[in-house]
Design a protein around this nucleic acid. Sequence first.
DNA 1: GGCAGAATTGATAACGTTACCAACGCGGTC
DNA 2: GACCGCGTTGGTAACGTTATCAATTCTGCC
Lengths: 357, 357
Amino acid sequence: MTIPDVARHAGVGQATAARVLGGYGSASAATRERVLAAAAELGYSTNAVARSMISGRTDTLGVVVADVENAYFARAVRGIADVAAKAGLQAILANSDEDSEKEKAAVQLFIERRVDGLVVAPAATDDAHLARAVAAGIPVVLLDRVVTGAALDTVVVDNRGAVKAAVTRFTEAGHTRIAVITSAMPGDDGTRLAPGADIWTTTERVAGYRQALRAAGIPRSAELIRHTGYERAWARSAVLELMTSPNRPTALFTTDNVATLGTLDALLDLDARIPDDVSVIGFDDAEWTTLIRPRLSVVSQPVQELGGLAADILVRRINGAAARPRRHTLNTTYIARESTGPVPARARRLRAPTSSS
Amino acid sequence: MTIPDVARHAGVGQATAARVLGGYGSASAATRERVLAAAAELGYSTNAVARSMISGRTDTLGVVVADVENAYFARAVRGIADVAAKAGLQAILANSDEDSEKEKAAVQLFIERRVDGLVVAPAATDDAHLARAVAAGIPVVLLDRVVTGAALDTVVVDNRGAVKAAVTRFTEAGHTRIAVITSAMPGDDGTRLAPGADIWTTTERVAGYRQALRAAGIPRSAELIRHTGYERAWARSAVLELMTSPNRPTALFTTDNVATLGTLDALLDLDARIPDDVSVIGFDDAEWTTLIRPRLSVVSQPVQELGGLAADILVRRINGAAARPRRHTLNTTYIARESTGPVPARARRLRAPTSSS
DNA sequence: GGCAGAATTGATAACGTTACCAACGCGGTC
DNA sequence: GACCGCGTTGGTAACGTTATCAATTCTGCC
C-alpha cells in the first residue's frame, strides 16, 4: 500500500495525499479527512525507508559499546535510548567486545546505514574510522573514553581524579602496600597492557592510583599492579596469588565491576576478613554492593546521565549546532561504606582454598 | 559520492560499477579493479537506504524489551545481537517499560522502518499490533512470555514447572508457610495484579507456586503472595512487613531479580539468619548470588540462549522458512547452594530496623 | 574461418517517498 | 468587474540503488 494507492482510493492527487500522510504542507479539513479515511481503510503505513531516501535523515542513532551485557554499558545504552526516543530517534546497537576491528566494522556499517549520529565507547586508539563518519556528515560523540587527538565531543568522568581521591583515603589511613586490580588484557609479563588493549579509562584509573602513591611518597611496586583480563576468574586467581605472596598488600583498589567480582571471590575463598585483613574499594556501584557484608565502598559514576548527555549532544548536533567539539566531564561520588579500615597490626595467615574451584 | 560518480571516474557504465560495488552479477577482473580503485579514490560508501529501497530488506531486527538496564534483558539482547550479527543483521532497540502502549508504538515504528524481523518481550496481552507486523510480512518472535491466542513463534522457559519444582523442595523439607515475592504492579488490595500488568511470566511462576502447595496439600493463603511492583524498595518493605507479622513464613520464593534484591535487603535489615530463620530461593541467577553468604540457591535460566534462539528462528523465517509457528521451551536448572534449610524449630524474634532507611 | 554459447557490459525502469513549481479557485479590495 | 493574494491542489523530478534485458565481446571448437 503506497501513497498513490491511497490517493486513488481517496480521489485526490498523489501530492495531496502525500502532504496529508506526511504531515507537511497544507490541505483542507475535508480532504485531510478523506485521505486519512482511505489510508485507514487500506491499512496504509508510511515507508520510512523511502522517506529517508529523500529526506536524508534516518531517525536512527548508531551505538557502539563493548558489551551490552555489562551493567555499565546497559545503563549507558538505556540513557542514550531514552533521550534519543524523546527526540524521535531509535538506537541501533553494536557490541565491539573491546575489539577495535569489530568497532571499525560496526562504524562502517553505520555510515552505510546513514545513521543520523553515532555514540561510540571506543576500544580503538585511532580515530580514522570516526573521522570518516564525521566526513560523511555524521556527528560522533565518544562515551566513557577519550581518544587523544580526536576532535570529537566526549563524555567522560574524571577517572584519574576519582581514583586518586579514593586511593588517597587508603594512604591517609596509613596503608602503604596498596594493590590495584584491573581488567585489561594482560601482556606477556602479566602486568602490562597488551598492544591495542590500552583502554583510556583503565589507563587513567591506574594513573590516578600512581598519582596518589606519589603524593603520599610511596614508591611504586610493579607486582601490586595487576592487569587480569576481562574474566572474573582471572581476577580471582590474580588476587589469590597476590594475597598469599609474602609482603601482601593491605588494601585493594579494583577499577571495574569484573575485577571487583573476581577480587571478592578470592577474598571469600581465602577467608580474608574485610576490612580487618584487607581494605577494599571498587570502581562503579553495582546493585549488589549493599548486599554483601561488609558493604562495599565504591566510586560511583552517573552512568545513565553519561549516556543521556551523549545522546543530547548528538541531537543538538543533528539539529545543526556547530559549536566546537569539547570534552564533558561529569562528577563521580565516593560512597563510603564498610569495606575500608586501618592497616592491620600484623598479617593474619591466609591460605588458598584446598578444593580447586 | 554515488555509483554514477564512480562509474564516470572509472570510465565504465553505471550498471557495471553497480555490479562490482554491490557484489552481484559478473565483471571482469580488470574492470573490477578499475571500479574498486575509483571507488577508493572517491571515498565511495554504499548507501544502504537506497539499497533497502529496492531490495526490500533492511538487514535490521527490531527488539522490544521492558528495559535493557535489567540484567535479564541485557543478556537476552546480547544473545539476539550476536546471532543477528552473524547473519548480517543489526538490532534496533526499544524499551517498553512494561507499558503496552509504548510497546505498540515501538512496533508500529518498526513496521514503518521495514525491519526484517521483530523480537518482542510482550507486556501487552493482545496481539493486534503484532498481527499487523506479520500482515506486513515481518516475522515476529515472542521472547520470555507467551501471548495466549497468538499464532507466533515463542521462546520461553517452563516457568511454572521450574517454580513448582523449586517450591516443592521447600514442601519436602517440611515448610508449610511459604511466601512468594513477585515484582508486578500491585492492584488496589496490594496482592493482585493491576489490570494490564499481568505479565505471563509472573502469572506462570505464581501458578507453579500454587501447584506445588496443592500437591503438598497445603492450603493457600492470600497474604503469602506479595506483588510488590518493580522497585527494589517496595519488595523490601513488603518482606519487612511479612516477616514481622504473626505467623510469618519460614520460606521465601522470589520470582525475579528485583524481588530477590529487595527481599535480601529486608532480611539483612531484620538480621534474619538464612537459612536458620528463613529459607530463600530466587529466580534467575545473577553475578552476585555466589558473593553473598550464604550463597543463594536459585532457578537459573539460559537467558542468552533464549535470545539467540529467538534471533535464529527469525533469521530462518526471513530466509523463507514457512513452518507453522510453535512454542520453544528451554530448560531451567535448579542450582542448590546454601540458602535453604529445614523448618526452624521455633521462630526467633525479628525486629524491624529502628533507623529508617 | 565461422559459429554457438558463455561472459561481460550498459541503458533504463523500477522502488515510494518528499521537494518543487505551476495551476486553480475563492474572497476581498480598489 | 477586474485584479491581487492566499490557501489548496496536482503533476513531476529527484533520491541512489538493484533488476531486467538487450547488446556486445570473448572463448572454445568444429
